[in-house]
Amino acid sequence: MESFEQENPADKPDSAPQLSRFHWYCQGLKGIASVPAFILMMSYVGFGALAQEAGLSVTQAAFSTAVIWALPSQVVLAGALAAGTSIGLVALAVALASVRLTPMVAAWVPVVRDPQSTKLSLVLMSQFVAITAWIVTMNRMPDIPREGRGAFFVGFASSLTVCNTFVTILSFIVAGELSDSWRAALLFLTPIYFLTSLTAAAKLPSDRLALLFGLIFGPLIYMTGIQLDLLFSGLLAGTLAFFVDKQIKKRAARG
């Protein structure tokens, strides 16, 4: 579904840049009332429960959402610190769980940057890049004029972070009230939502192939038991998708 629609940007080409930036920032803010944002909040309900089991206080749990803002990293952190792991090893495990952010941010930069973007502004904005914000950005940005893209992203992604910091607090407080069946259903929301929204966002043939190969290679390489399994499966499946796409295009060009 198109989760938050607005009028076609081509309809109003004359608006002043300042006004238009504020307009797109507000459009981004409105995105918080959307299906992707709602599902991410449900996923963070699961994190509040996990953090409580791990022995974090409610403020520490909220703090970790605000300063890390990547659910897989937070899940690894909570699991490792509960086991009494030393700080160096926890940092290593979290780093291994979040390597994916580099290609995600690298693919995101050419989409959101405008002539006025600086390295510093992009570094600050990249703090808000995580799977939901990334998928929504890749899905929506082609319809947004370039000068409004950064403002839209900041409006959407920063409000996601703030809302989920509060969701972490709320879910921490109500954790334990839910039965196992309901908690299982909450945990199932994240993968099914990622799967449908990534399928909807994959418009290029190479992205679709990457999605398909990634789904297959992820668990296969995980079962080999090697370290950094996600990174290897991503590189392998992504590279394979890239070359298969090239071959298909070459054949099509030859007729």
Partner: peptide, 23 residues
């Protein structure tokens, strides 16, 4: 882009096939 998409796809299928907790 392909590598980033494949990485997220890997996260998805692991969450479905090898989930932790009550799921």
């Amino acid at each position: 882009r392909a590598v980033a998409s494949a990485l997220i796809a890997g996260v998805i299928s692991k969450l479905i096939l090898f989930p932790s907790g009550p799921l």
